[in-house]
């Protein structure tokens, strides 16, 4: 109410008008003029417009989300109802004819394998790059390297796809042969196909690694810069070398950040579409031997099939998209659990 902010020195008339307004608001306590009344601020036009528009935006977002979810689930359920195979365990993708049978087992396998290879390569390299930038490189070099890493993040994925297909994959044939020659006794490194193509899940994993590297490196770099100087000095004063200091103070402090950064990268690796679709010589079966051509990922399969799909096919693809969504959710949830398990040692309460 305006009386509470009206100085006593102002005229009685003004105070009266204030009190009258208060009464009309049904909140005034009328008679007690000496005590400042609980303030009910007058709502100004600007506030009202802002409140309305931001609330509207929030509601709009929820409506759009709900519409998308309803559409996806309805389409997917529709298709799943007509499926003659087992959606979760089959690896075929037949969506026309009298007996449509489709399943995501092969797609999920390919998605997980290529993303896992990408993470195994990208995380150590990204952490190394971030450590070099924050703790080893002279300032000028660090700055330049930082820019280059950021620039790598700006390359469109279709360019990575072209590069991987035309330039990188022919160069990797030798590496494929070498790996299967020396590690072939491990079943997944075995190679049935001696053919001269490297359009494999392994190559996809490498390209995905290059694509997610800048995200992981950029985020971990920021985390490493947050490590308090006091903790680094504590380690150094104990007689730690630089690497020992990093092991004692920097890496433990940055661990939750490294995990979060990896999850961001993994999200992209799981969902990357066009680069995989271009590079991979795909097949529908579940492929574990990632040095052989074949296999497919959920996202790439959607990109490859969508144009030629009938209505049932589209529904099936949407269902597979939902599987990808839950896969990502699952991985993120698992990472949260890992981060929270050591919360009291996280350094956040230091």
């Amino acid at each position: 109410m305006s009386t509470s902010i009206t100085p006593e020195s102002r005229g009685d008339a003004k105070r009266d008008s204030g009190r009258r307004r208060g009464r009309s608001d049904k909140t005034g306590h009328g008679t007690d003029a000496k005590l400042p009344k609980p303030a009910k601020t007058q709502v100004r036009l600007g506030d009202r417009v802002f409140l309305g528009s931001s609330r509207g935006a929030g509601i709009l977002l929820l409506v759009i989300m709900a519409a998308i979810a309803v559409f996806l689930v309805v389409e997917a359920l529709d298709a799943l109802g007509k499926n003659d195979g087992n959606f979760l365990t089959d690896s075929t993708w037949v969506t026309d004819g009298a007996k449509p049978a489709f399943g995501v087992a092969g797609l999920v396998g390919g998605t997980v394998i290529s993303a896992a290879i990408a993470m195994l390569i990208a995380v150590p390299v990204a952490v190394g790059v971030a450590l070099f930038i924050t703790h080893y490189a002279p300032r000028r070099v660090a700055q330049t390297l930082g820019y280059i890493v950021d620039l790598l993040a700006a390359v469109p994925s279709v360019v990575f796809g072209l590069w991987g297909l035309v330039f990188l994959s022919p160069k990797l044939i030798g590496l494929h042969t070498w790996l299967s020659d020396y590690l072939g006794w491990i079943p997944i490194f075995d190679k049935d196909d001696a053919g001269a193509t490297a359009r494999t899940l392994f190559t996809c994993g490498i390209i995905l690694a290059i694509m997610v590297l800048p995200i992981i490196a950029a985020v971990t770099r920021e985390v490493f810069l947050q490590v308090p100087r006091a903790h680094e000095e504590a380690a150094l004063a104990l007689g730690a070398t630089r690497w020992e200091m990093i092991r004692t103070a920097v890496l433990p402090f940055g661990k939750p950040g490294i995990i979060s950064a990896s999850m961001l990268g993994l999200g992209r690796a799981l969902g990357e579409t066009i680069a995989v679709a271009m590079v991979l010589s795909s097949s529908q079966e579940l492929v574990f031997k990632f040095l052989d051509p074949g296999g497919n990922t959920i996202a790439a399969n959607i990109a490859n099939q969508f144009g030629e799909s009938n209505e049932l096919g589209r529904g099936a693809l949407i269902a597979s998209g939902l599987v990808l969504f839950f896969l990502t959710l699952l991985v993120n949830g698992a990472a949260r659990v890992v981060i929270n398990r050591h919360k009291e040692f996280s350094g956040a309460n230091a």
């Binding site: 308090p228 006091a230 903790h231 000095e233 504590a234 380690a235 150094l236 004063a237 104990l238 007689g239 730690a240 070398t241 004692t248 103070a249 433990p252 402090f253 661990k255 050591h342 040692f345 996280s346 350094g347 956040a348 309460n349 230091a350």
Partner: peptide
């Protein structure tokens, strides 16, 4: 210098135990 710091210990202005350690 690493050997020097092992011989000569230091305690800092603000307590700085490693937060990630017991």
């Amino acid at each position: 210098p690493v050997a020097v710091r092992r011989t000569i210990g230091m305690v800092f202005q603000r307590p700085n135990p490693f937060p990630t350690m017991s």
